[in-house]
Amino acid sequence: MDWLKIHRGNAPLVVAFPHGGTDLAGCTFASDWLARRDTDWWIEDVYGFARDLGATLIATRISRSVIDANRDPSGASLYPGMATTGLCPETTFDGEPLIPAPINEAEIARRGETWHAPYHSALRAEMDRLRSIHPQVVLYDAHSIRSHVPRLFDGELPLFNIGTNDGRSCAPELERAVAVVCAASGESHVVNGRFKGGWTTRHHGAPDAGIHAVQMELAMRGYLAEPVEPTPENWPPRPDPARLAHLQPILKRVLSACLAFAGE
């Protein structure tokens, strides 16, 4: 599966990247640029230091516009009554049409069997491997998003958005440890705000079984200069070295707190 990247470590930490891919897999979109615009740009680079912590890293190269690996495979909304994007999105975050015609059920099922199910099977296999070594394992689901997306949330998003499915996907001690690091950074943060955790967090988090899942949604201004409005000419900008130099030590402390919780 050349679309799936796995770096295996032996520490009790898995860092997952379901939305960093840009491969459109031959699928037809209204605009290839729109199909890639809502990517979690450069997210694997932002967390590149995680290898040195002994973490296992799992990433899909497939774009979230083909199939969203962080959505319920049944198609059920994770945020009922709120604006969101679906398993095989029909619109962008801003509501622009993404596909020229509706996707039929057979094609949705094909994409699920080809990419969604194998991604989560790989996640489960790595967590089971680490769980055989350690009494507890942390699954850290790494995301990023533009700071301003009016259709999804009002105003400017906090820099650090911690999601634990309202405390159900991990032990309260882990949620608190991550929040303490973010608060100590002096940057804005929220726990279970607009982003409470997607399918990865909700499906795999099983604290009673020693699997503790946390989602972190970063506002992209933490590592790049966001334009007022993204266009094909200005989006995506490259990561800003000065912003990364400030952000990455905080994220390293976050992941170190996850490891400390797991007993590493």
Rank of each mutant, 00 (worst) to 15 (best):
Arg176Ala: 12
Ala122Leu: 06
Glu107Gln: 13
Tyr119Lys: 08
Ser77Ala: 15
Glu90His: 02
Glu105Tyr: 02
Asp128Tyr: 00
Cys170Arg: 00
Arg129Glu: 05
Asn70Thr: 15
Ser144Leu: 08
Val190Trp: 05
Thr114Trp: 09
Ile103Asn: 00
Tyr140Cys: 04
Glu90Cys: 01
Leu174Thr: 03
Ala101Thr: 10
Cys182Met: 10
Gly186His: 06
Arg110Ile: 03
Arg111Ile: 13
Asn165Trp: 06
Ala101Cys: 12
Ser132Asn: 10
Tyr79Met: 02
Arg129Ile: 07
Thr91Ser: 11
Val180Asn: 00
Leu98Ala: 05
Tyr140Phe: 15
Val180Tyr: 00
Gly81Met: 01
Arg176Cys: 01
Leu157Lys: 09
Ala76Arg: 14
Ser188Cys: 06
Ser132Gly: 13
Ser169Tyr: 06
Gly198Asp: 11
Cys88Ser: 03
Thr91Val: 11
Ala69Pro: 07
Thr200Leu: 14
Ala106Thr: 11
His120Thr: 14
Arg176Leu: 10
Arg129Pro: 08
Pro73Tyr: 06
Ala142Met: 12
Pro100Ile: 03
Gly193Lys: 07
Thr164Ala: 04
Ala183Leu: 12
Val137Ile: 12
His148Glu: 14
Gln136Pro: 03
Asp166His: 12
Val181His: 00
Gly197Ser: 08
His148Ser: 08
Cys170Glu: 02
Arg168His: 08
Ala76Ser: 11
Ile108His: 04
Pro118Val: 10
Cys88Glu: 00
Ala142Arg: 04
Glu156Ile: 11
Glu187Val: 03
Ala184Met: 00
Arg110Pro: 05
Ala101His: 13
Glu156Thr: 13
Ala142Trp: 08
Leu98His: 06
Cys182Asn: 01
Thr92Glu: 01
Ala142Gly: 08
Pro158Phe: 09
Ala125Trp: 04
Ser74Trp: 03
Arg111Gly: 10
Arg194Ile: 11
Thr114Pro: 02
Ala117Ile: 04
Asn161Ile: 05
Ala183Gly: 10
Asn104Asp: 15
Trp115Asn: 02
Glu156Ala: 05
Ile133Arg: 14
Ser147Gln: 11
Ile145Asn: 01
Gly198Met: 13
Ser121Arg: 15
His148Phe: 10
Asn161Phe: 05
Ser77Thr: 15
Cys88Val: 15
Leu87Ala: 03
Pro73Ile: 11
Ile99Arg: 15
Pro89Tyr: 09
Glu187Phe: 07
Asp72Phe: 08
Pro135Met: 03
Ala171Pro: 00
Phe160Tyr: 09
Asn104Met: 04
Gly81Ile: 03
Ala117Met: 07
Arg129Gln: 06
Gly86Phe: 01
Leu130Glu: 09
Asn192Phe: 13
Leu98Asn: 03
Ser132Thr: 11
His189Trp: 09
Leu130Phe: 12
Gly95Leu: 09
Glu105Arg: 02
Leu123Phe: 12
Val191Met: 01
Gly81Trp: 01
Ala183Glu: 14
Tyr140Thr: 06
Glu173Ser: 08
Leu174Ser: 05
Arg168Pro: 02
Gly163Arg: 00
Arg110Gly: 12
Val138Asp: 10
Arg194Ala: 14
Arg146Cys: 08
Trp115Asp: 07
Leu152Cys: 11
